[in-house]
């Protein structure tokens, strides 16, 4: 076998080897860099300090994939309910005047416990647990 041919073959092997190695290492390195988006923690969600709710009594937060409405009543107690209307999946809002939850799509109404009281909604809103740990509001799924 000619030395030229052998040299060529060896360099081909070398290049191929380095190429294959980088084809393996590149994905591994990219994999190890954590993605920028915050980890989807669906079992619990930190909403923020209680003081955020000094002037407002409701807020819609994203709990994984599902929107959740966090309510504060006059006594300062918190309650979290699924914000997806049970009628046609619109997102509900808090009606301060009537102290009810209102779905603006078809005027469905729920009371503050999530029970459907008027309009088309067929079912009550699902409830989430609210815990206040170190003055910070946390929402957790009741299923867990």
């Amino acid at each position: 076998m000619g030395t030229n041919r052998r040299k060529f073959l060896n360099s081909l092997l070398g290049i191929g080897g380095i190429g294959a190695l980088s084809a393996i290492i590149y994905p591994i390195m990219s994999y190890l860099v954590p993605p920028k988006i915050a980890e989807v923690k669906v079992n619990s969600l930190k909403v923020g300090p209680v003081s955020d709710f000094a002037n407002i009594n409701s807020k819609i937060v994203k709990f994984g994939r599902t929107p959740v409405i966090l309510l504060k009543d006059n006594q300062g107690n918190f309650k979290a309910l699924s914000a997806t209307c049970t009628h046609l999946d619109c997102i509900v809002q808090f009606d301060n005047e009537q102290q009810q939850i209102l779905c603006a799509c078809h005027g469905g109404r729920y009371d503050l416990t999530g029970k459907n009281v008027s309009g088309p909604p067929p079912k009550p809103l699902k409830e989430f647990n609210v815990n206040i740990i170190d003055n910070e509001i946390r929402i957790t799924s009741q299923e867990a």
């Binding site: 994999y31 989807v40 923690k41």
Partner: peptide
Amino acid sequence: ESVQFIVTKVDFGWL
């Protein structure tokens, strides 16, 4: 959820 996270969010996680 974490497997879902790996598959959808992490670079090459699906791989």
